[in-house]
Structures are given as C-alpha cells and as structure tokens.
C-alpha cells in the first residue's frame, strides 16, 4: 500500500508540473494585466517601470522558470490586485467552498440513494417514473437559473431562508464552519441545494441503473432463498454492490463540485474560492488564477487516490499492487 501511494504521489507531481506549464503559458496569451494595474494615462516611463518590475518584458519560459523557482519555496506570487500572496488568499477562501461542497454532496446522497434504489426496485410504479422524470429536470435546468428561482421562492416570497452570505460561523474540533451554527445552516442550505441538484440527478440515475442490474443477479435471489429479511437483502447485499460505481462517481464529482461551484457562489454571494477565481479572471490576476488551478488539480489528483483506496475496501476483488494481502 505504501509503495503504491508513493508511486501515485510521484505521478501526481509530474501531472502538476505539466499542467502548471500549460496554464502558465495559456494565461500569458490572454490580455495584458499591466493596464489593469495602472491607469492607461500614466507616463510611458512609469508603465515601462512596472513592466520591468513584474518581469513582463522577459520571454514566457523565463518567466515560468522564475515562477517555478518561487513555487519550490512555497511562493505562488502576489495577487496583482490585492497585493498579498496568492496562496494564502486562496486558502483563506477554500474552507467556505469545501463546506458548501461537502454539504451539497451530503444532500445529494441522502436524497439520491434511497430514491434511486426505490426507482430501481419498482420501475413500474408511477412514483418511480415521477422520480426519474424529475431527475432529467435536475440534469437539464441551468444552475444559475435554479439558484435565482430558489432565492425568489425561499428568500423573497416565503422569506424562510437568507439568500446571501455565509452567516455565523461556529467552531467545532478547531474547524470553523457555518455548518455548526443554526444561522450558518440556514445560510448554506439554499446554495448547497442549488449545487447539489446536478449531482443528485446523476447519482440517482446511477443508483437506479445499478439497482436494476444487481437485483437480477443470482446472489440476490440466493440471499432471498436463505430467508433473509427484505431490508437485509437491500441494505447489505444490494447496496454494497451498487456503492462501487457510486463511490467512483462521487469522488470525481466532489472535485468538480469544488472546482465549479463558481456559478452557485456567484449567485448566492458565497465568499468561497469559486467567487475569487471569477473575480481574478475579470481582473487578469495571473498569479491567483495559476495558483488556484494548481490547487484544484492537486485536489483532483488527491481525490482520485482516495477513490482508488476506498475502492479496494468496497470491492475485495480490487487489489492494490504492493498491498500485503
């Protein structure tokens, strides 16, 4: 197992390196941040000085080399806009995004797994058909629109839940999060639901498909022939088998929940990293964009590893190379 994790970590660094090169060069192709930083009416000499100061006159690859050297010492550069180091700026925003993603993942699992199993067990029932049609809606409605509708309904019309911000933060086990206060929960609910909708639909459909497939297997019939209760057959024999694909998808989707929560964060003014990256793209804040993308890629790579390890626990037929069994 240890050997396997080391190998994977090494591979990850290669991926990160290649990816940072692409991102760095790519970002250099779009726009000139210089005009974002100083007024176009400034003296040409002044402009010249700033260009020199930031090293924009050097070739891209040389700039990249400087960047790499700095990254090696943990310095991702300073935000052009805010003048503070990019890495802490992003990391400071990350907890808000992670908590939003975790909570919306929780919502989608709690709703999607039971509904998916139900729709898979009783495909002929009207309720199952309603569930499945509903999941198509969940797939196809644009997130920003659903977000606005949620605000209209629950915040404006009914006035049940707040529509913007993160609310009060509570501290539990040294982690600060709005999940630990009632006020915070009321703030996170709408954006999390909004973000969950798409995942919910895909997990639901996956669960249903898995249920339909597994329920026909001999081992389910054999479990019934052993006289096991219905709930044991479903909760142990069926669920453990359909969890294998579901865990894979959830693991990968969790990455995309974090990476692409930008729309929801913008609609609900959620102070997370997604909103930060959108602002940085508008302002051509290169160091923040590059640092953000590198963090996200590292996060994806890490999630993949976690999924692979989880996989071997769920499915005993998957053996990780180098593990002792």
């Amino acid at each position: 197992m240890t050997v396997y994790i080391l190998q994977r970590t090494l591979q990850s660094f290669v991926v990160l390196f290649v990816m940072s090169l692409i991102v760095f060069c790519g970002v250099n192709l779009i726009g000139d941040p210089i005009y974002m930083m100083i007024s176009p009416e400034s003296e040409p000499a002044e402009i010249e000085r700033v260009i020199k100061e930031f090293g924009f006159d050097r070739p891209v690859l040389e700039q990249y080399w400087f960047f790499l050297k700095n990254v090696a010492s943990g310095d991702f550069g300073r935000s052009f806009v805010q003048g503070i180091p990019a890495l802490p700026l992003i990391l400071e925003r990350f907890p808000a995004t992670i908590e939003l993603a975790v909570f919306s993942l929780f919502i989608s699992l709690v709703i999607a797994l039971p509904l998916g199993v139900y729709a898979g067990l009783y495909p002929e029932r009207k309720s199952s058909k309603i569930i499945m049609s509903g999941s198509i809606l969940g797939f196809s409605m644009p997130t920003f629109w659903v977000g606005i509708m949620l605000i209209m309904l629950f915040a404006v019309k009914l006035d049940w839940l707040p529509s913007t911000g993160r609310g009060e933060l509570g501290t539990f086990l040294g982690i600060e999060s709005s999940l630990f206060t009632l006020n915070g929960l009321s703030h996170i609910f709408l954006p999390a639901l909004n973000l969950a909708l798409f995942k919910l639909s895909s997990v639901l459909r996956l669960t249903r498909a898995g249920t339909r497939e597994v329920i026909l297997q001999d081992y389910i019939k054999f479990a019934r022939a052993k006289g096991l209760s219905h709930s044991r057959v479903i909760n142990v024999h069926l669920l453990k088998n359909i969890l294998i694909p579901v865990v894979t998808v959830i693991g990968l989707e969790f990455g995309s929940l974090v990476a692409f929560s930008t729309v929801t964060e913008t609609v609900f003014a959620w102070p997370g990293a997604g909103k930060l990256i959108i602002d940085s793209v508008y302002n051509l804040d290169r160091p923040v964009i590059v640092a953000y993308l590198i963090i996200i890629v590292a996060f994806f790579v890490f999630l993949n590893l976690i999924v692979d390890i989880l996989y071997s626990f769920l499915d005993p037929r998957v053996r990780i190379k180098g593990s002792s069994e």
């Binding site: 297997q217 001999d218 081992y219 019939k221 054999f222 479990a223 019934r224 022939a225 052993k226 006289g227 096991l228 209760s229 142990v236 024999h237 453990k240 088998n241 294998i244 769920l314 499915d315 005993p316 037929r317």
Partner: peptide, 25 residues
Amino acid sequence: MQDIRGNRIAMIFQDPMMTLNPVLR
C-alpha cells in the same frame, strides 16, 4: 414464507460463480 426459506427448505443454485455475493466475506 421467509421463515421457511433457508430454514426448512433450502436451495442450491446452478452457477456457483454467481450465487455468492462478491463483496461479502
């Protein structure tokens, strides 16, 4: 009926590769 199944009347299936749940000990 559930009390009888596996208790008073048991069944053995045709394909041994498929009758045991692959993810349970």
